[in-house]
Design a protein around this nucleic acid. Structure first.
Lengths: 243, 243
DNA sequence: ACAAAAGTGTTATCAGTACACCCATGC
DNA sequence: GCATGGGTGTACTGATAACACTTTTGT
């Protein structure tokens, strides 16, 4: 037995996926397409999202939406902002679209972002024509979803500097250079490899494994893992005021 | 002509006010009181909040709610989280209260916090029996408002370390020691006066005025101001990874 | 003259930054 | 043997942290 939906509250999910091979931070988007006999009415992309059910929490909605699209559960997620402007769904294409959906014109959406690896998502036989787009070359987007993505990205940029969420975007076993590449992708900066390497290796919760890369056509790199247990033990708040 | 309200979406405001004299970071709460012939049914405090009107943005709702309670406009505000658990308003007292108000049982609230000075708020002839409470000794609170306040406070603690929002809680002219006291109140830590003083005075956007405190029964301290213009000019993102 | 808070300097340590070459491996 | 990315060391600089006494003022 399904619960009823709340017509004017939705959750939208910015699904960030890192492609370790192309070193690209991507966003997972679904196709929005509608045509009349004569012409294409709507043809763009949107975030995945859905209404909140009457008996579920916002977090549960987000989890459900992600599972529906990707099959994945237990991925890192963060609620980062609510978007509720009265005109956020009111440009012409969106109105056409809303007419065809069970959707209130004045819907407030609570936006989440997820962090995962593109390779964990199987896009074959996907009902939504979902596709990955690099976060810096987004396609045309419906509703206010471009703004939502950009704000999610901003939040991610800030957060990855102070919390070890970067590892949510990487496989369990990774090389130091892969972490550096990821930081560079997210932040759009260059990082000195020697300094970065020293810094990371000195962290007690970055643990060198007894393993090296296999199947690479070059010198195979040392693999490391991130230990959340050690991190939690070692971590201490610092109250450094840097204004 | 007033717009209709959206019955299941509200904005709640955590109004932080710093009392420079008692060195206390306070939260402004309003009385919730209801009695039958025989007994007191509800007697506690809640945040100020209200439904969103159909034609206003969430930010506008927050601004309106603050103005209604304090008369103030143009105060620093931040939307920090949406709370939408299906049972967030469902403990017995809250149900009694909701029966008496035009209020949907499954209301999602978008929470904001404001930063201002207690002395800027005139609580005489206030319709809501509003009262300041130190953030670390809150009274009994209705709904999920204790949780909302604590999360607002956490956000404030983090944010005041990296952005110059501290000055929103202080008068335009302040002494270095007043800034230090405020940091100590918010963060619950002790700060070395000499180090703090040097650090602050070295900032180009902390500007020494040609003025000293007046009417104090001790050595009057040098007054300073914060210049947002200089801050914006001088400010540059740093990508310091501190995980 | 006393109380109260304002204001001041030095040293040690740590972290960040800048910078260029050799090494190990697969092909 | 060569191309590719992996991996390494040092010196400089700037910021933080620890620490206690003198000064100024109002009363």
């Amino acid at each position: 037995m399904k619960s009823e939906i709340i017509l004017n509250i939705s959750v939208d999910c910015v699904v960030f996926g890192y492609d370790i091979h192309t070193k690209s931070l991507n966003v997972l988007l679904i196709k929005r397409y509608l045509e009349s006999e004569k012409m294409v009415l709507v043809d763009d992309y949107v975030l995945t999202g859905y209404h909140v059910y009457k008996n579920e929490t916002l977090d549960e909605t987000a989890t459900r939406v992600l599972k529906e699209l990707t099959g994945l559960t237990d991925q890192y997620k963060k609620q980062f902002k609510a978007f509720g402007d009265p005109d956020r769904l009111l440009n012409p294409k969106d109105l056409i679209w809303i007419k065809n959906a069970e959707f209130h014109e004045r819907t407030t959406t609570v936006a989440y972002y997820f962090l995962l690896k593109t390779e964990d998502v199987n896009l074959k036989n996907n009902n939504y024509h979902a596709k990955w787009f690099p976060v810096d070359t987004l396609p045309e987007l419906g509703f206010d979803h471009e703004q939502i993505i950009l704000e999610a990205y901003e939040d991610l940029k800030v957060k990855c500097l102070s919390e070890p969420i970067i590892f949510k975007l990487l496989p369990d076993k990774f090389t130091i250079n892969e972490v550096q590449d990821l930081y560079q992708s997210i932040l759009g900066i260059d990082i000195d490899n020697r300094n970065f390497r020293r810094k990371l290796i000195n962290k007690k919760y970055i643990i060198a494994l007894d393993e090296k890369q296999v199947g690479v056509s070059k010198k195979p790199a040392q693999l490391y893992m991130f230990s959340k247990e050690v991190y939690d033990k070692v971590f201490q708040k610092n109250y450094l005021i840097s204004i």
